[in-house]
Design a protein around this nucleic acid. Structure first.
Length: 502
RNA sequence: GGGCCUCUAGCUCAGUCGGUAGAGCAACGGACUUUUAAUCCGUGGGUCGUCGGUUCGAUCCCGACGGGGCCCA
């Protein structure tokens, strides 16, 4: 990592930082405000571009406007200077500063006080240059904000680390960074539109929880001074959304952050956006259809097609109905022998060993079966595929499959080789639910840090009667990955990075 | 958790078979009234991630630590 100081001491600064601070001081000494409260601005660069689209070469419109933007190119010549201004969405406009319009002092100041990266306001006539470039020919200009750090070389890509650490610079320089930042809210809006069309109610449930639940994951632990008690950041909203359904909010969804205290890599972030929804009187097939609609509508709303083009040019077809495979069929094919929920732990271990899977002694049978599946099949599932029917013992919140013993009505959706979403026919029998959670508690006591615990208030809610329902969950970051092919850290504006200096 | 790669100027990167370093862009000084990564002339800028070790001498070799990346479980 570079050694650019985060909190620079005034002496011993790198040359370019020192020079820019001197320029700021010099402006102040001449009673020029480097950070004014406001600057003239009558139109955005986008509005100028729209208004004067198609203007011929070397035209003077007579229209006087004030515009502002960050200087991303600067070409100073003797008596006529050019700069390219850019505003937030990437729209640019050329500014021209000429001796005969602004005078000697102003031109000299432009050359010596203004740097690449500064934000300026320019007032003048909208013209096209002799080369046909739409421009504003300055009658006057003023500094809007002095940049004390130089912009990186625009023509060489910033390293991945610099992009993530200084996303603000990434956003200034890289069009993809700007479009990625705008993609997420567009997808969020599409997801909400789909839910609203189906008369779902959006709710917000607690992120600070007394007892984390709803998923198999390690939580972040924190502490409340006011209550003098440990609290946890939620790993899933599931148990609260189900409480909503008990209360009669029969179609409910939430889009918000979950936190899992686990490894971070190109598809896992410690905090990630998750969508979860529950539909009374639905089942796992109902929510599979919903999930497909959510994803396909997102693709259509954002890209205008179910075929999405990834950043590397690869196309991914999310259209049509999607393939469904059985989890145990996939495992059987992978190991070359029939495997069912009844296959013994000993046999599963033999298969796992043969495949070179490192077995965690805390794994129960269902977990081992899923690990084998992930090893032999998951990564190969590039086209959207529902993997149907999971082992009962590793899915404590899901109801039993109506025909297949030892299996629950749970699917995982795989796209591009990773798990994008999951859906259940939810378990609604409070007695069986209690048995399942008590069993989870036993696993937890034996050292399984991901095991769920018995949430008495959740069980009490169930005991008031929970309607039959289907539920689903989907990672929003992963949806963005499926739509764009990007890594998770590119879909998140400010992913967690370790500090540069300790 | 294990393995591999990587950290050099503001940015992106070369490089030194061990004798304290270079390019492009950026910066500084000068020339230029139509530039588009402007051009031309000149100049400066570095604790070579940190701390140890080996050595007459380490940015380079070795070790530990820290940051980043990739692969594996």
């Amino acid at each position: 990592m570079s050694q650019t100081p985060i909190s620079p001491e005034e002496d011993d600064l790198p040359e370019q930082l020192r020079i820019r601070r001197e320029k700021r001081a010099n402006l102040l000494a001449r009673d020029i405000e480097p950070y004014p409260v406001s600057v003239p601005r009558t139109k955005s660069l986008t509005m100028i571009r729209q208004t004067y689209e198609g203007l011929a070469i070397d035209v003077a419109t007579g229209d006087i406007e004030s515009v502002s933007g960050r200087i991303i190119f600067k070409r100073d010549t003797g008596k006529l200077c050019f700069a390219t201004l850019r505003e937030g969405d990437g729209t640019t406009l050329q500014a021209m500063i000429s001796l005969d319009k602004v005078g000697e002092d102003s031109l000299a100041s432009w050359k010596s006080d203004i740097d690449l990266g500064d934000i300026v306001s320019v007032t003048g006539e909208i013209i096209t240059s002799k080369r046909g470039e739409l421009s504003i020919l300055a009658n006057d200009w003023t500094l809007a904000s002095k940049a004390l750090r130089p912009l990186p070389n625009e023509h060489k890509p910033m390293s991945e680390e610099t992009r993530v650490r200084m996303r603000y610079v990434d956003l200034i320089l890289r069009p993809e960074a700007r479009s990625n930042a705008r993609l997420r809210p567009a997808v969020m809006r599409s997801l909400r539109d789909t839910y609203h069309e189906r008369e779902y109610l959006e709710v917000e449930t607690p992120m600070l929880q007394v007892q984390p639940g709803g998923a198999a994951a390690r939580p972040f632990k924190t502490y409340s001074n006011a209550y003098d008690m440990d609290l946890f950041l939620r790993i899933a909203p599931e148990l609260f959304l189900k409480r909503c359904v008990v209360g009669g909010i029969e179609r409910v969804f939430e889009i918000n952050r979950n936190f899992r205290n686990e490894g971070a890599d190109s598809s896992h972030s410690p905090e990630f956006a998750m969508i979860e929804s529950y539909e009374a009187y639905g089942d796992w097939l109902t929510v599979a259809e919903l999930t497909r609609a959510l994803i396909q509508n997102s693709a259509m709303d954002v890209f205008g097609s179910h075929v999405v083009r990834h950043h590397d040019g690869r196309e991914s077809d999310l259209g049509g109905t999607w393939k469904e495979i059985s989890l145990f069929d996939a495992i059987s094919e992978g190991v070359g022998e029939p495997v069912t929920a009844q296959t013994s732990m000993e046999d599963l271990k033999k298969f796992a060993v043969k495949l070179g899977i490192k077995i965690d002694p805390n794994w129960i049978k269902g977990k081992l079966a899923e690990e084998i599946f992930e090893h032999v099949t998951a990564g190969k599932l590039n086209e959207p595929t529902f993997v149907m029917g999971f082992p009962t013992d590793n899915a404590p919140l899901v109801r039993a499959h109506r025909t297949i013993p030892g299996v629950v009505e749970k699917w995982d959706l795989y796209v591009d080789g990773f798990e994008l979403a999951t859906g259940y026919s939810e378990l609604i029998d409070p007695v069986i639910q209690r048995e399942r959670l008590v069993e989870q508690g036993r696993l937890g006591a034996k050292g399984d840090v991901e095991a769920m615990s018995v949430d008495e208030d959740f069980l009490r809610a169930m005991e008031f009667g929970m309607p039959p329902m289907g539920g689903m969950g989907m990672g929003v970051d992963r949806l963005l990955m499926a739509l764009t092919g990007l890594g998770i850290r590119e879909t998140i504006l400010f992913p967690l990075v370790k500090p540069e200096i300790d």
